[in-house]
Write a protein that binds this DNA or RNA. Structure first.
Lengths: 336, 336
DNA sequence: CTTAAATCTGCACACGGTTGCACAATATGA
DNA sequence: TCATATTGTGCAACCGTGTGCAGATTTAAG
């Protein structure tokens, strides 16, 4: 209140007020250190009074541990990305880490990553597609853990945790075939993203297993608008498929909407539609979309575990590619 | 590659390789400092070779500037929150700041905020409802800027930037009245959130201005499911309203869905529906929802400006409450 | 009561980078 | 040519905290 200049409270101030040395203050905030209960109480009381919190910057200088973890994300318009970010952040928080956020929609993410390195992040979690191989090398060189979640970074040097996209796509095909579909169209996602390629591969492979050829394959770029366009192209022909499998939920919504509005097509009576990601919207009554639940929580947990073991100085486990199985969630878009 | 132990590159290493002093290295990375082009080049070359980046922690110790800004967010399932976070983060990045993220869904956010203070954040941007007044006081005491975006924090001591909720709600009423609606129901949001109260107040006041009484007022808690429930309660009676105004888009979607599926009600023929937030989904064909664009970008810019002026040591501008006008976006949910 | 062990405390240096200051090197002007 | 202004450099003292070490204090044991 009375303070006009911004003045920070230092451990020295607390020590002085408590009548002890700075060391005692420091040790009060260090779990395994020798401090008598009496001094600890005095210190805590003084700290409370002054509003003291240890300066994490100064601390990290000595301990070489910052407790900061970098997250590279992108495109929160995609509900899946949003959920992944929220869960990841929350999980890190619960472990006592502080997440430093970075959006890499733009191309110039290298400079931003340089900034992250400046801040001595202890690890990097990447959920966005773009991170230059030069930067990846920087990180690996300083052997800080770097893990890609929901992305397979081509360098192959980076441990990645993805949904089992191919396997899940196969489950979609199994389901559609089981309910009698034979003419199945596929709407693919962002051609850059590995997830889209894996989903398409899995789809094609499983189709071949049934001796089926895809009705068509159309790009939808993982967006709602792309789904609308793809739906239009698929449905405007003379013959229409009996099912449309999309590489993510957003595109499915576009397909369903354009089908209903422009072609008077009823889902699931005329055409079945499936998605991928099991976003909250998939549960909305307008869509009731059969989808794949990618088990985000498990992906996050695995990522966290990997980061933790990397930080606690494991002998640098070789980069691996973990795949988390997804689960088919059947809704009204494929059954009456 | 050859390094087996994790070893950081310090300015000393760079200085040694470049054949200069540590000061020279430091000055190379300090914009307004005396360094000859020759030395700068030598330093940069050496830095590049070793992969050096200045340690932001150590730097902050002397400069008292961390470049870190804390963001307290919540509930990314709400597309509006997600967009706000993405824009805010991007804006901060562009100014050279690094955002430290914190989710405060849980109640124990105080401890997390303590952590933020530890990290010496230069300012705090809050987009979530809950921040204890004790913590707010802590921040104000150390006179670091703290700004609430999209939330009015009751302490009143905190500068807040919100959408002009009341004014926008009035625009909704104006629009509905203009197209001939008289029996207008309102679906309110989260009773805790100030935005919901303001929207309801604005609605009621403008209704009164036209000498109209609301058809009904129902709680929807800002969620899709809440919208479904509210819609059911509103529509299951004998008489139905000719318009339903919702305090956010998510609830509108729920209302529209339950209306269509359970009551065979066509929007806009039977009932007009309006939302709030103008989320991307409002533009989807299934909904084509008339809504209020809150001008998130402007809110972010104002917040940023406020933070900046606070950081650059302005004499502590008194807490204010800025309201950003929203814009009515008319879509098919209110016109044929 | 004496002695050894156990527990606690303060001193002082280190962490990596910045910056005031004094001085060296170079350029400028007469 | 010399005096002076200008620019570039290195030294060394910080910034706030952690921690090994030695010594002080208390407790336990004999």
């Amino acid at each position: 209140m009375g303070k006009t200049k911004l003045e920070f409270v230092r451990s020295r101030d607390v020590a002085q007020l408590a009548g002890v040395s700075r060391s005692a203050v420091s040790r009060t905030y260090t779990p395994g250190a020798y401090v008598s209960d009496a001094t600890r109480k005095k210190v805590l009381a003084a700290a409370e009074m002054l509003g003291y919190a240890p300066n994490a910057m100064a601390r990290s200088l000595k301990t070489k541990r910052t407790g900061i973890i970098g997250i590279v994300s992108s495109d929160l318009h995609n509900p899946f990305q949003a959920e992944l970010l929220e869960r990841l952040t929350t999980a890190l928080q619960n472990e006592g880490f502080a997440p430093l956020l970075l959006f890499a929609d733009d191309a110039d993410s290298d400079q931003q990553l340089e900034q992250m390195i400046s801040y001595q992040v202890e690890a990097l979690a990447v959920t966005s597609a773009t991170v230059s191989s030069r930067m990846a090398a920087r990180f690996l060189g300083s052997n800080k853990p770097i893990v890609a979640i929901n992305r397979f970074l081509a360098q192959g040097e980076i441990t990645s945790i993805t949904s089992d996209n191919a396997g899940s796509a196969a489950k979609i095909v199994d389901h559609l075939v089981e309910i009698g579909c034979r003419k199945i169209a596929f709407v693919s996602g962002d051609p850059i993203a590995s997830s889209s390629q894996e989903r398409e591969d899995g789809f094609l492979r499983r189709m071949a297993h049934y001796n089926l050829v895809p009705f068509s394959i159309t790009g939808g770029n993982y967006t709602y608008e792309g789904g609308v366009e793809a739906g239009r192209r698929i449905l405007e022909g003379d013959a229409i498929p009996d099912a449309i499998a999309c590489a993510n939920d957003l595109m499915s919504f576009g397909v369903i909407d354009i089908g209903r509005d422009a072609f008077g097509i009823d889902v699931p009576k005329d055409v079945k539609v499936t998605g991928f990601d099991n976003s909250l919207i998939a549960d909305w009554q307008s869509y009731a979309l059969t989808s794949i639940d990618p088990d985000v929580e498990r992906m996050v947990q695995l990522g966290l575990k990997n980061i933790m073991s990397g930080i606690t100085g494991q002998p640098q486990s070789p980069p691996s590619h973990l795949k988390v199985p997804g689960q088919l969630v059947v809704r009204a878009s494929t059954i009456r």
